[in-house]
């Protein structure tokens, strides 16, 4: 992807988000106060946000295009979807099962091509199983944290 195109797209997204939040800020009520209320700073910050990102977008358009940069969109999407599924299933499957599945798939996705071998798959599989179980034991029993528990198992 052309770096300049991507940069302009991000600047434009920032501008749109700013406009959306600025519109949303207009409906905030001042609340119970006889001076400036809880609506003042949100209106001010989103207003400034719109101005600054608009400037950023227009100055970005004028700057010269830079060289292409490699971006593995598929890799990003795969990891993003994996994280979405991981979080969505946390309450249903619980921390241990979800993390075993996540770790297995994520380590496989990150594994460099030249290291793909049966031996490494077994090693990653073992790590994927041991780490969540140990993490659950340590954090729940030693540090008294509550982690999502499976509704099914």
């Amino acid at each position: 992807m052309k770096k300049n195109f991507e940069s302009n797209l991000v600047n434009l997204m920032m501008l749109f988000i700013g406009i959306a939040l600025f519109i949303s800020a207009q409906s905030i009520k001042a609340g119970a106060t006889n001076s400036l209320g809880g609506d003042f700073v949100p209106k001010l910050s989103t207003g400034l946000w719109v101005v600054v990102t608009a400037l950023l977008f227009f100055t970005g358009l004028k700057s010269s295009a830079s060289e292409s940069e490699q971006m593995n969109m598929m890799g990003l999407l795969k990891t993003f979807v994996l994280l979405l599924v991981y979080i969505a299933l946390l309450k249903t499957l619980g921390f241990i099962v979800c993390s075993i599945l996540y770790l297995g798939v994520q380590m496989y996705l990150f594994l460099p091509k030249e290291l793909h071998s049966k031996k490494n798959y077994i090693l990653l599989g073992v790590i994927a199983v041991i780490v969540p179980i140990l993490t659950d034991i340590v954090f729940v029993n030693v540090f008294s944290l509550i982690l999502p528990v499976s509704r099914i198992f």
């Binding site: 979080i87 921390f95 594994l111």
Partner: peptide, 14 residues
């Protein structure tokens, strides 16, 4: 890193 970073992600969830 292909082992370390996914493990860190599970710690992020914790």
């Amino acid at each position: 890193k292909y082992i370390l970073l996914p493990i860190i992600m599970t710690f992020c969830i914790v």
